[in-house]
Simulated scan of single mutants.
Amino acid sequence: MVMDVKLHKAQAVLVVESPHEEEVVTGVPLSGKAGIVVGKALINRGEPIGPLCQKGEVRLSIVNTFLQPRQFDVEGEGRSRLLSDIDSLRYGDPCGYKREIFELLNCTRERGLVESYKERLVDVLAVAEGRKIIVCGLIAQAVFEWVFGVEGLRPMPIS
């Protein structure tokens, strides 16, 4: 499990989807390839943003939508049915993809995963200086919209 990065007086909160292999190894969100992409986009640095946030060099908190990876099993933890089902979806158009995720969330018996996310995000926002939330990825967007009852987050291209 990869825990969130919670900084007091963070300027904003990054909401990401789930840890990848590098994050599982380091225990730090956004410490792999996705962290490099986000680092380039947000702070124009070609290094993973997660460790920089954890050290306080970049004043951003990071919340994983899911603490477990959705793409693979972590030894001994087993794999959540919800995460397996989300991972099995095939990406088409963004709106259709998000609707399919909404349907899975509506039907899931694993409410604890979603409630944990909501509680963790609210907890991190409570100590953030800024109330900006940057939601990264369509899965993170879909879960955010479903949990908080908002609609219409649009993907922004990262160059």
Score class of each variant (00 low, 15 high):
residue 1 M to D: 02
residue 5 V to N: 07
residue 6 K to V: 09
residue 7 L to F: 10
residue 8 H to F: 04
residue 8 H to Y: 08
residue 12 A to W: 05
residue 15 V to F: 04
residue 15 V to W: 04
residue 16 V to Q: 04
residue 17 E to V: 15
residue 19 P to Q: 03
residue 19 P to R: 08
residue 19 P to F: 10
residue 20 H to W: 00
residue 21 E to W: 11
residue 22 E to V: 15
residue 23 E to L: 11
residue 28 V to K: 07
residue 29 P to Y: 13
residue 29 P to G: 07
residue 33 K to G: 01
residue 33 K to H: 10
residue 34 A to L: 15
residue 37 V to H: 04
residue 38 V to C: 03
residue 38 V to S: 09
residue 42 L to D: 08
residue 42 L to H: 06
residue 43 I to D: 03
residue 43 I to A: 08
residue 46 G to D: 15
residue 48 P to N: 10
residue 50 G to W: 06
residue 53 C to F: 00
residue 54 Q to W: 01
residue 55 K to Y: 08
residue 57 E to V: 12
residue 59 R to Y: 08
residue 60 L to M: 12
residue 64 N to Q: 04
residue 67 L to R: 15
residue 68 Q to N: 04
residue 69 P to L: 11
residue 71 Q to F: 00
residue 72 F to Y: 15
residue 75 E to P: 01
residue 76 G to S: 06
residue 76 G to W: 01
residue 79 R to T: 09
residue 80 S to D: 08
residue 81 R to A: 02
residue 82 L to H: 11
residue 82 L to T: 03
residue 83 L to W: 03
residue 84 S to I: 05
residue 85 D to W: 14
residue 89 L to H: 02
residue 89 L to E: 03
residue 89 L to K: 04
residue 90 R to L: 11
residue 91 Y to N: 07
residue 95 C to E: 10
residue 96 G to T: 14
residue 97 Y to V: 13
residue 97 Y to C: 09
residue 98 K to I: 14
residue 98 K to A: 12
residue 98 K to V: 14
residue 105 L to G: 04
residue 107 C to P: 00
residue 108 T to W: 04
residue 108 T to G: 03
residue 110 E to T: 00
residue 113 L to C: 05
residue 114 V to M: 00
residue 120 R to T: 14
residue 120 R to M: 14
residue 123 D to I: 02
residue 124 V to N: 03
residue 126 A to H: 06
residue 128 A to W: 05
residue 130 G to A: 15
residue 131 R to C: 14
residue 132 K to I: 06
residue 133 I to C: 12
residue 139 I to R: 00
residue 142 A to Q: 05
residue 143 V to G: 02
residue 143 V to N: 06
residue 143 V to T: 15
residue 145 E to T: 07
residue 146 W to E: 00
residue 146 W to G: 03
residue 148 F to D: 10
residue 148 F to V: 07
residue 149 G to W: 13
residue 150 V to L: 11
residue 151 E to V: 13
residue 154 R to H: 10
residue 154 R to I: 13
residue 154 R to K: 15
residue 155 P to M: 00
residue 155 P to I: 08
residue 156 M to W: 07
residue 157 P to V: 12
residue 157 P to Y: 09
residue 158 I to P: 07
residue 159 S to N: 02
residue 159 S to P: 12
